[in-house]
Design a binder for these strands. Structure first.
Lengths: 218, 218, 218, 218
DNA sequence: GATGAATGAGGCTTCATTCAT
DNA sequence: CATGAATGAAGCCTCATTCAT
């Protein structure tokens, strides 16, 4: 075999390996997501995950530092996806009140309906699981809040209005996140009323719009 | 000792015992509250609780069925106290928009500031801890939401307005609870800005008022 | 009240107390018997016994040294009753082969049918429960075996026959006890065929008669 | 290393592992047998077993589901060995009265003398230890009884005799098992008279022969 | 890189027993 | 005598993590 051919082979197999690695990583993550949301983080042992993912426990520890890390990665991934989806809606109809509604609909009518397990992990299974996880949660929530604060500031600039106080934008952002969270929790996790989600979302978004307006002063 | 005296003695000691029992129950509950909120539910072992409460492990199990039960009792107690406080504010200034603000202030400026550990347990440590705890949480949240829905309906009756849809009242209630939750979490658990809480509360409550109004139709 | 009257009163109440004490003792024993045979010795806690007997745990320890003692007393009582019943049949038709059959019938068709719980405790729940209980069991079995050895010796004397070896009488006695035990276990504890017990007993007793005869030499 | 060599190595090490696994399983079983028979099932903690077997507690639970399972496996193993030994004697001298004697001698003079701990576990430590163990015991006893019933039926066919009743064969089998049990218990567990066991066995077997004959009708 | 047997700290819970009232 | 709250040793078991192969 020529050197070139060898290199080609090597790089090909290296690529394949790389691909397989990423695939495995994803498989594990997906399996963990399913189990965590179905059985709970604590009730899911590493053994169970390994079995369901059809790998050995050792392999789990090759891809993830430890069980907590697995949850943190999952969390980050979920956070990233939500921001991607919701954020893109914000920027699409930039700096308008409609942007808020579009973003809300994207979250409720798309994300929640398609990924109830992600919602479960994000809002239930990753809560109260110790410092490392909590730190990761905080980071993601901070970004969300930052996103919304940014949108609110752009909105105020464009509309030429001021908010009640210096804190108002942040408080509104936090409030909106809280609404998202508990509405999803209520109508997805506690009661499976994903069918009502559309009209629920509309009411919730009208609530947000009203809330924001009420904190605006000319 | 005369019979009467004997009876008196007996009933006195019986009463004392009863009192001591309840005191112990409360002591354990309080100690658990402190440890759960400081170290986390899982990081707190029954042994630690026993030591901190200066009783034996056995005594813990005399008063509570198991560790989960301890958390559930704690939860119920916290839920009861919040409803008591917030609910009384609602009824004091009945069926007015101000009632909503009073209730919110009572929650943020009184309860949260006085009982940050209760907030921590209620919104963080009792989440994601298995079915039994989750069921208890749900029950309490359902009551909260019911309280607010009731207040909203009385409000609409008094003001002679209708809400956007049949679900609106519930959605608003859920939203308000979500706001309470995350605002408290943000400014008490994640950042200790209890000093800002007063003005944060004002903004949040203005947000609520605006939201509710926006869902009212003549 | 005259001295005599007082004494009378005192002795009356003393008698009553004595009676009550014995009644309680019996109640506890009976309750324990029921629970031990139904749930097993280990699965029955002192608390359960106390509750079922409607007394406090403390009272249990007034009447019995400890849990083991409770079982030992139960055991002795059962052993005594069996010997009483079976032994009286032996002596009624003294030193005849029929005596063996009468005794067997008394055991199978009377005792077993009437007291399955006693059988369960005697042959199952008191086995493998530590030294003290085992010592008590041994003592009782030794007496049984002694009874039967005695009966066999009187039989051999009356019939003018000798047994195969010096050990024969004891071995036969042990064998007979073993048969009693396992037959009762099989048709009472493992399969509830108390209806068949009569005919089972007949076969078993014919077996014994045959066995004994085969060890007799003129 | 060539592929072939590699494979050989792999399969060798795989085989070695397999061997080591089985060895460990056996070690644990043997250690448990010793401790259970010496100290009693309940007095033997899993920690003690782990220490004596020079493995960790975790390893115990890798090989056995729980403590009960350990006892059940032990029981099954013992039951299997007894049947193997006694059954082979039955078949060697098939369908003769001597077969019964040979089998009995194999049990008393070989098995009991060589494995007193197995006898102790089988007849003492595994009794009264809860449902799961009891179910396992019953299964094994049922097989024993079935074995003997089979032998009796072949005997009756060969000799051209009938038994007293339809139940007779079973009752005889049960009786024989009971005799085996209590004779072993008496002369091995309660009194260490293994020296007398030979002559004890002879008497016991003569008893059996007589018993069986007495239930035969031409 | 993958495997999976082994580890062992540590958790939860039970329960026989005691003793002040 | 009776009560029943309190004790705490001790048991069983889980499970995240490691490491030799």
């Amino acid at each position: 075999m020529s050197e070139a051919a060898k290199n080609a082979t090597v790089s090909t197999s290296a690529l394949r390996r790389q691909r397989e690695r990423e695939q495995r990583y994803q498989t594990i993550l997906t399996v963990a997501e399913t189990l965590f949301s179905a059985d709970g983080y604590h009730a899911t042992s590493m053994d169970k995950i390994a079995q369901a993912a059809e790998v050995s426990v050792g392999t789990l520890y090759f891809y993830f530092k430890n069980k907590e890390d697995l949850l943190v990665q999952l969390l980050s991934d979920i956070g990233f996806r939500i921001r991607e989806l919701v954020g893109s809606e914000f920027s699409r109809s930039d700096a308008t009140m409609e942007g808020f509604e579009q973003a809300g609909l994207a979250f409720f009518s798309q994300f929640c309906v398609k990924h109830p397990e992600k919602i479960t992990i994000f809002f239930r299974e990753s809560v109260g699981q110790g410092q490392a996880v909590e730190a990761a949660r905080k980071k993601i929530f901070d970004k969300f809040i930052g996103d919304i604060v940014g949108a609110l500031e752009r909105l105020s600039k464009k509309l030429g209005v001021k908010f009640k106080s210096g804190l108002s934008a942040e408080v509104m952002a936090v409030s909106i996140v809280g609404m998202y969270e508990r509405v999803a929790y209520q109508y997805l996790i506690w009661h499976d009323r994903s069918g009502d989600l559309q009209s629920v979302a509309e009411d919730a978004l009208a609530f947000i719009v009203g809330g924001v307006k009420n904190l605006c002063t000319a």
